[in-house]
Each structure stands twice: as structure tokens, then as C-alpha cells.
């Protein structure tokens, strides 16, 4: 700020020598993190003391089991297919609930729209809390609260997805050109009008692709949720494995694969559209 002390000096003068740029200091932080990460990896490898012979043996056993699983037993399709559909329903319901709620909360979380920085911080903190607890833990919590069945699954997916969607929706809104918000503000529009007429149309494609991505993840998660008793196809898989009915387990696995794969195909098509 030394120039300010001499306001008459013309700092734009072309005759004045250019200021020498100092060589930037090396960033020791990144280097330290990398070195620490490498050392920790080696330490873990040593400390966990993995028996590699076991790994080899296990691979053999694994393939033996795979062969054992053939052919898939499709006789129980009448139970498996409805369960698959239930998983799909749980995922869709959970995702839709999360999208609707996050659409309200994301605008409170986005710093360029939040009524105050504190509101933004509180909503973001709340979102982080929901996000860091995995869906399966949420499912266990909700099973205690509301009992077994699809409901805890729906709630678990809704809560965990909400945590992520608030964050990514708010980020999309924050990346938006401030001028567009300013323009509507200047015309006397209110907060809700600005969101509905300027923000949503501008970030719509981002919101849609995040929603599709989240639905994809949630379909995967809803199949897993069955394992802890939150209904759906995961529950069927669990049952088959427990009774060593590997042939049924293979069929169920194939159904899950087809389900997730087709959703991914569909969402890829959708993403091309938006």
C-alpha cells in the first residue's frame, strides 16, 4: 500500500521499471500430504499383516463357488421380481422426497441467495451431518424407529440423498452468474420470484443431471438396504445366501445387475437430452 502514501505519484507511468516478480515459494503442504500418504500406505500394508497365500487359496474357493452357483435357480421368480420392483419403488420414493425437500433447503444454503450467512452455514452443516452418516446406518436407525419393511428404506435413502443434494444444488446455484439475480432484484422482484423465474431456469440442467445421478446411486443403495431388513431384493439375496441356496442367489444377483444396468442406460439417454 506504499503508493497510497504518495497520491501524486503516477503509478501508471510507462517509464517506471516493472516490479520484479519474486520466485514463488514451494508448496510444502501438498508435498507433505503426499509423503505422509505414501508412508501411511506402507505402514498399513505392514501392520495389517495380510496372508497372501490365503488370498490365492481364497481365489480358488471363490471360483469353485461361482461354478457351484450355476445354473441360476429361477424357480422363485414370483418372489424375486416383486422384491426387485419394491427396491426400485423405495429408491424412487426416497429420491423424490429428497429432491423436493432439497429444492427448498438448497436455496437457503446457497450463499448468494441465503437470507444471511448464518442460515447458509446452518443448512450446510445439517446437510453434512446427513451426508456423513451412510444410508445403511440411517436404515438401522429408522428400523428401530418405525420397524422393518420398505418405510425405513425410503426414509434412509431420502435423508442421505438430501444431504448430498442440498450440497450439490447449492453449489450449482452459487456458480450462477450473480448478475441475473441482481437484474431481477433491481426490478423489485421478491426472493421466491427470483428463485422461480431466474435461478431455477438457469440451473435446471444441472439440477436434473444431479437428480438422475442420485437416482442411480439410490437404486444401488436400495438393493443393499434389504440386507439389514429394509425390504426389497436385498432381503431376498440375504435369505438365499443364509440358506446356502447359491443358485437362487445367482439369479437374484443377475436381476439386480440387470436392474442397475438398465437404469444406467436409461439415465445416460436422459443425460444426453438435458
Amino acid at each position: 500500500m506504499s503508493e497510497l502514501e504518495n497520491p501524486n505519484e503516477n503509478i501508471y507511468s510507462l517509464t517506471k521499471d516493472e516490479e520484479e516478480i519474486l520466485k514463488p515459494k514451494k508448496d510444502f503442504f501438498i508435498k507433505g500430504v503426499l509423503i505422509f500418504g505414501g508412508l501411511f500406505f506402507l505402514f498399513s500394508l505392514y501392520e495389517l499383516n495380510i496372508d497372501y497365500a490365503n488370498l490365492l487359496e481364497g481365489t480358488g474357493a471363490f471360483f469353485a463357488m461361482l461354478i457351484d452357483m450355476f445354473p441360476p435357480n429361477i424357480s422363485e421368480w414370483a418372489y424375486v421380481l416383486p422384491a426387485a420392483i419394491e427396491s426400485l419403488q423405495v429408491a424412487i420414493l426416497g429420491t423424490v422426497i429428497a429432491v423436493v425437500i432439497s429444492l427448498v433447503l438448497a436455496f437457503l444454503a446457497a450463499e448468494n441467495l441465503a437470507p444471511s450467512l448464518w442460515v447458509s452455514r446452518i443448512v450446510k452443516g445439517f446437510a453434512t451431518l446427513m451426508r456423513v452418516i451412510p444410508t445403511i446406518i440411517w436404515a438401522l436407525i429408522f428400523i428401530v424407529a418405525v420397524g422393518l419393511g420398505p418405510l425405513p428404506g425410503v426414509l434412509a435413502i431420502a435423508v442421505h440423498s438430501l444431504g448430498m443434494l442440498i450440497k450439490v444444488f447449492a453449489q450449482s446455484v452459487e456458480e450462477m452468474d450473480e448478475g441475473k439475480i441482481e437484474a431481477l432484484k433491481a426490478s423489485g422482484a421478491g426472493w421466491i420470484q427470483i428463485i422461480a423465474q431466474a435461478v431455477i431456469p438457469t440451473v435446471l440442467t444441472a439440477l436434473m443431471s444431479w437428480t438422475i445421478l442420485r437416482l442411480e446411486i439410490d437404486i444401488g443403495e436400495s438393493t443393499i438396504l434389504g440386507l439389514v431388513g429394509a425390504g426389497g431384493i436385498g432381503w431376498e439375496l440375504m435369505r438365499a445366501m443364509r440358506s446356502y441356496d447359491f443358485n437362487s442367489a445367482l439369479f437374484i444377483t443377475m436381476v439386480i445387475f440387470i436392474m442397475i444396468f438398465s437404469v444406467e442406460m436409461l439415465s445416460n439417454r436422459l443425460k444426453l437430452k438435458v
Binding site: D177, G179, K180, E182, A183, Q197, A198, P201, T202
Partner: peptide, 8 residues
């Protein structure tokens, strides 16, 4: 920068 809403 005009600040129009592009998609509308």
C-alpha cells in the same frame, strides 16, 4: 452483460 435468463 444484459443479465437475461438464457433459457426463457
Amino acid at each position: 452483460n444484459f443479465n437475461l435468463i438464457d433459457r426463457l
